[in-house]
Amino acid sequence: MNIDLSGRTAIVTGSTAGIGRATAEGLARTGASVVVNGRTRTRVDEAVRQMRVAYPGSVISGVVADLSTADGAKAFVAEVPDADILVNNVGTAFLREYQGIRDIAAIPDDDWLGLFQLNVMSGVRLSRHYLPRMVDKGWGRVVFVSSESGVNTPKEMLDYGMTKTAQLAVSRGLAEAVAGTGVTVNAVLPGPTRSEILGEFMARQAEANGMTVEEAEQGFLQALRPTSLIRRFATTDEVANMIVYACSAQASATSGAALRVDGGVVRFVA
């Protein structure tokens, strides 16, 4: 399959590292002009610099904005008023350093609200701006990067799981709202992935317990995701491959879907 997105402008939020960075690079390889986003000038500038070196034929730009706030979203769309592709990737599982399983009684209001603002409202705000413009043009792609935790509510990260379920509701609702317009809206559901946040946590766990990162990952899977069928963490590129496909012309008949890249963690066929 030859995916060609030449002439398209793609926004990938939260794309200085992890799944977002792999997605931005994947879209650059298809010929799309890519807008990288992060919260700090240093990280955005370095990501843009590296991508311009790696993909000299691509147009790469960067926007610094904290998309967990309405002001941040407003500033972002002021810099990039139009786009053909929007990947709502920005998000986190932890607003503070991960301390392991937390009882629901120990999760403060600020964590619930903070995760909702970043993981859900960032995508709502940007979709609200870009979707009507895509509809006017008769073509567009919106992808929400959710998680298997959106359908497999994790007891160890209940606040995070809630936001990922909300993303599924938003993506499906938006897909129905733009039915028949040439614009598609989908969600992608990664499972455990060697992203920046989880990767760093696994590295700390490995060092603290005198084991390799691979052994730490296996311990995580056995304790918290024993239903994994691939029995390893996915790479960010493996997840990005699905996202890039969902952004392509070839995915024109796929809309309103929850596309799983979870390694088989979720135990149902659908």
Results as ranks from 00 to 15, higher is better:
Met121Ser: 04
Met121Gly: 01
Arg128Trp: 02
His129Thr: 03
His129Arg: 04
Tyr130Trp: 06
Leu131Cys: 10
Pro132Ala: 10
Met134Arg: 08
Val135Gly: 04
Asp136Gln: 14
Lys137Met: 07
Gly138Arg: 12
Gly138Met: 07
Val142Ser: 07
Val142Phe: 04
Val143Trp: 01
Phe144Asn: 10
Phe144Asp: 01
Ser147Val: 13
Glu148Asn: 12
Thr153Met: 10
Met157Ser: 09
Leu158Trp: 03
Tyr160Glu: 05
Met162Phe: 13
Gln167Pro: 09
Ala169His: 14
Glu176Ala: 11
Val178Thr: 13
Val178Gln: 13
Gly180Gln: 13
Thr181Trp: 08
Gly182Lys: 09
Gly182Phe: 02
Val183Met: 09
Thr184Trp: 03
Pro190Asn: 05
Gly191Trp: 00
Arg194Asn: 07
Gly199Val: 03
Glu200His: 14
Glu207Trp: 04
Gly210Pro: 05
Gly210Phe: 06
Met211Pro: 00
Val213Gly: 02
Val213Tyr: 02
Glu214Cys: 06
Ala216Val: 01
Glu217Met: 03
Gly219Trp: 00
Leu221Pro: 00
Leu224Arg: 15
Ser228Asn: 04
Leu229Glu: 14
Ile230Asp: 03
Asp237Gly: 04
Glu238Asn: 07
Ile243Asp: 06
Val244Gly: 05
Ala246Met: 14
Cys247Pro: 00
Ala249Met: 08
Ala251Lys: 08
Ala253Cys: 11
Thr254Met: 14
Ser255Arg: 09
Ala258Cys: 06
Leu259Met: 14
Leu259Pro: 04
Arg260Met: 12
Asp262His: 03
Gly264Ala: 11
Gly264Thr: 11
Val265Ala: 04
Val265Arg: 01
Val266Gly: 03
